[in-house]
Amino acid sequence: MEPGDSVILTHLRRGALEHVILAMLDGEALYGLDIARRLGADDVLLSGEGTLYPLLARLRKQGLVETTWAESTAGPPRRYYSLTDDGHTALAAFRRTWTTFRDAVDAALEGGHP
């Protein structure tokens, strides 16, 4: 990664990360640590767990995700996150909007016009 890339990634994450999490939860409930591991696998989507849990709490407060507790054989009970109906609606809207936005950015970066 080049100097300055981390600032760009921070700005991009800020706008997209909550929707990436919603997409990860589409179809399956996930444990918070599983979400962190998947997002942090390449150090692009998540640079540390410190921002994940406040974001999950915000998504829950907004009614986009709900949580359930499940016993674990490897320690204390785990909190699992899943999409609500409002979460599915928000994800569908993001998917529609993202494609148009991504295509416009790609066109501009390739020297065309959005």
Rank of each mutant, 00 (worst) to 15 (best):
A41E: 04
T67G: 05
R95P: 02
L55Y: 06
I8D: 06
L39H: 07
R58M: 08
H88T: 04
L30R: 12
D5I: 12
G111M: 03
T99Q: 03
L9T: 12
A16R: 15
L25D: 02
R37G: 08
L25P: 04
P3W: 10
V20R: 15
D85A: 09
M1T: 04
L59S: 06
T67P: 03
G15F: 14
V44A: 08
W69P: 00
G15K: 13
T97P: 00
S47C: 12
Q62F: 14
S82V: 01
G32W: 14
L17F: 15
L55E: 02
G87E: 02
D42H: 13
T89C: 00
R79L: 03
A74T: 08
G111E: 04
M1C: 05
Q62A: 14
D42Y: 13
A107V: 00
G87H: 02
V44I: 14
D106H: 05
D26R: 11
R13G: 07
L109R: 00
L17A: 10
E28R: 15
L55S: 02
M24H: 06
G15W: 12
L83H: 04
R37A: 10
R95N: 04
R58F: 09
T89I: 01
L59W: 08
D86F: 03
T68F: 04
D106R: 07
I21C: 08
K61V: 08
G48Y: 07
R38F: 09
G15M: 13
D5M: 12
E18I: 13
A57R: 14
L12M: 14
S47P: 03
I8G: 07
H11M: 09
L25E: 02
M24E: 09
G40N: 09
L17V: 14
R102P: 00
A16I: 15
Y81M: 00
L33T: 13
I21K: 06
R37F: 12
A57Q: 12
D86V: 07
A23G: 14
L91N: 01
Y31S: 11
E28Q: 15
D26N: 12
Q62R: 15
G112Y: 10
D5S: 11
G40L: 05
P77H: 02
F94L: 01
A23Y: 13
A41T: 07
T68A: 04
R38D: 05
F101Y: 05
R96M: 08
T73D: 09
